[in-house]
Design a protein around this nucleic acid. Structure first.
Lengths: 102, 102
DNA sequence: CGAAACTTGTCAATCATTGACAAATTTAAC
DNA sequence: GTTAAATTTGTCAATGATTGACAAGTTTCG
């Protein structure tokens, strides 16, 4: 899975034979805005991740990976960050985790 | 280097013998707010990255790595994202790069 | 103690995001 | 081609988050 998060949702939706209106209703969203999300013109609000997981019976962990991976990728692309950024990110996560355990 | 971005700035500043007020002035910032940034209570605005690079003669690329690495780490920590998120992020960056070249 | 450095609290102003709806365009069935 | 459904695009007020600014507090250290 390498697509953007918007493309990912669109595939889920069409594979399951739902229209924008139908999925939007289940996510408590305007269908026009869902269209924009699928086309990368708006952000999917992370508070709807669990709803999305429920609608398509997805693992929420898997969804978070897709979602945040997408966010990071967009930032890196926009600001032309080298791949090394991700290595540093990993180090810093561990640093944060240790901070709160000692 | 594993510290947060705030700690990173603080180290730069003290290593160079600057007070909050002095550095804040050079960054066009309120010293009280710089204090909050160093202590992780506010975000450093990315539009000031170049100024920061100039003040301390740093490589802007290196700075971006620290800065965005920090942002990603904070998000991952806050939302408990598995490390795999970063792998997916890398895939998606490449996907985005390819999108705009074909 | 006294002064400089630093931290914390607060709030209005600014900026970005969102929900909502209308209008335009595309798609697909007939 | 006509029509209806589906999708996309544009817009904007409302909401929410971020920022700058400044006052007041605390810490540090001579």
């Amino acid at each position: 899975m390498k697509a953007t998060f918007g493309e990912y949702i669109k595939k889920l939706r069409t594979d399951n034979g739902l229209t924008l209106t139908q999925l939007a209703f289940r996510l408590d969203l305007d269908s026009a805005n869902l269209s924009k999300i699928e086309n990368g013109k708006r952000e999917f609000d992370e508070k709807r991740l669990t709803k999305l997981a429920i609608v398509f019976s997805l693992d929420i962990e898997r969804l978070k990976i897709e979602y945040f991976g997408d966010q990071f990728a967009k930032k890196m692309y926009a600001y032309n960050c080298p791949t090394e950024t991700l290595v540093v990110a990993e180090e810093k996560v561990n640093y944060l985790k240790n901070m709160n355990t000692k």
